[in-house]
Computed example of a mutant assay.
Amino acid sequence: MSRVFTRFHYAHDTDTTAIERIQDCTPIVDHATALRNEGVHGDKEMRHAARFPMVIVERYCNEKGITFEEWMSNPEHAKAMLNDSALAAFRVWEGRS
């Protein structure tokens, strides 16, 4: 897995700090693609639907204004990510969630 970098940005004029998380997700996409191409996605009882890096989950939470706890406790958030065409590269199983 590729390393996650954290950058802190401080704005003197507003006295605010922003945190930026950066990760090269190419290896994760490549792994998901390989699993998808090989048909390694489980069976109807337990599907391996996708492999989302934490930086993608964090971005989703920030955009939706929710906590990670909310993301984990409400399956609608994961379902929304699974059905988001912009995140299709992370899908292992191509079925509809």
Rank of each mutant, 00 (worst) to 15 (best):
M1F: 06
S2N: 13
S2Q: 14
V4Y: 02
F5D: 09
R7A: 15
F8N: 06
F8I: 09
Y10M: 02
A11D: 14
A11E: 12
T14Q: 07
T14M: 03
D15Y: 04
D15T: 11
T16M: 13
T17L: 14
I19L: 07
E20R: 13
E20T: 15
I22S: 12
C25V: 15
C25E: 12
T26L: 03
I28L: 11
H31A: 09
H31N: 04
H31P: 00
T33S: 00
A34M: 03
L35Q: 04
R36M: 01
N37W: 00
E38V: 01
G39N: 07
V40H: 05
V40N: 08
H41P: 00
H41G: 06
K44F: 06
M46P: 00
M46L: 15
M46K: 14
M46Y: 12
A50I: 02
A50P: 00
R51F: 01
R51S: 07
P53T: 13
I56L: 02
V57N: 09
V57M: 07
E58Y: 10
E58C: 04
R59I: 05
C61L: 02
C61E: 03
E63K: 14
I66D: 09
I66P: 04
I66S: 07
T67F: 08
E70N: 09
E70L: 04
E76I: 05
E76A: 13
H77Q: 09
A78G: 05
A78E: 10
M81G: 07
L82A: 04
N83R: 13
N83K: 12
D84P: 01
D84F: 04
S85M: 11
S85I: 10
A86R: 12
A86L: 07
L87Y: 14
L87S: 11
L87H: 10
A88T: 07
A88K: 15
A89H: 09
A89E: 15
F90R: 03
F90E: 03
V92R: 04
V92Q: 01
W93F: 10
E94N: 15
G95C: 11
